[in-house]
């Protein structure tokens, strides 16, 4: 596993667990949780600077850009125009061409609007963005996103923040077999076994926020997720035994009385 690096658009990542930075009690807790998770990619949102209270600290003061890849998202965008605008703002703010593209379809489910996602992806790829799209667990859409030029796709496990875990392992498995770019399972993980399952299915990485930030002890959960993703990856590489309906004895019959 020493050389088991994740490579996306020529960038090498050491961790297969990526984390969001929302919902924490404060920046100190955010920083500790990220450190405990071992993640080297962290997602951030783009929002108005608070101009009335300049005493507020900035999240990025807590995150060393040399240590972490900062992945801005277009969270909160419900149409193509907004998503493209926020992506351009993120790039203008000067981190990189990387964007986690979200075009949401509905406030209750926060499911992606895949038609809008495809449209926004086309625009941004043309403008030189490295688009990592947050998408549904739909293999056809995933392939379309790759055809447009996405160097990875990010299908959901379950609705954002739902903690339901992998709801459609079969679709995710089909995406992993069909699509020849890294698959990052994004959103819906609830606990360590969910993350392990996503990795056992063959995901290249898992991205989560609420499962860690919303846990009673976020730092401990961050550590649990680190091991879960690592164990799931090892199990995937090791190759699990096939499922069988009946028993197969582990001990030999020879030598019995």
């Amino acid at each position: 596993m020493q050389n088991d690096r994740l490579i996306i658009a020529g960038r090498e990542f050491t961790s297969r667990l990526w984390v969001g930075t929302g919902k924490y009690k404060g920046f100190a807790e955010t920083k500790k949780a990220i450190e405990a998770s071992g993640a080297d990619v962290v997602t951030v949102a783009v929002r108005r600077v608070n101009i009335t209270d300049r005493s507020k600290e900035n999240l990025l003061d807590y995150l060393d850009p040399k240590k972490y890849t900062i992945l801005p998202n277009t969270a909160g965008c419900y149409n193509v125009e907004d998503a493209v605008r926020y992506a351009r703002l993120a790039r203008a703010a000067g981190v990189s061409d990387l964007i986690k593209l979200e075009v949401l379809g509905d406030e209750r489910t926060l499911f992606p609007d895949t038609a809008g996602l495809i449209e926004a992806t086309k625009i941004l790829v043309k403008e030189g963005f490295i688009v990592l799209p947050y998408t549904n667990d739909d293999p056809i859409v995933a392939q379309k996103l790759v055809d447009i030029g996405c160097p990875a796709v990010m299908p959901l496990a379950a609705p954002i923040g739902s903690g339901l875990g992998v709801r459609n392992p079969y679709n995710l498995k089909i995406i992993m077999e069909m699509v020849k770019v890294p698959i990052i399972v994004d959103a819906g993980v609830g606990t360590a076994s969910d993350a392990a399952l996503a990795m056992e299915l063959g995901a290249d990485a898992v991205l989560m926020n609420t499962a860690i930030a919303g846990a009673q002890d976020p730092i401990a959960m961050a550590e649990a997720m680190k091991y879960a993703v690592y164990a799931g990856r090892l199990a995937y590489k090791a190759g699990r035994i096939p499922r069988k309906l009946y028993a197969t004895a582990s001990s030999p019959i020879e030598g019995m009385l």
Binding site: Y24, A45, G76
Partner: peptide, 18 residues
């Protein structure tokens, strides 16, 4: 409009609605 990066993963977090 002056914008910067804030903590975010899920959309609702970012809007601070929770």
């Amino acid at each position: 409009e002056i914008l910067s990066f804030i903590g975010g993963g899920a959309p609702m977090d970012a809007q601070g609605k929770g």
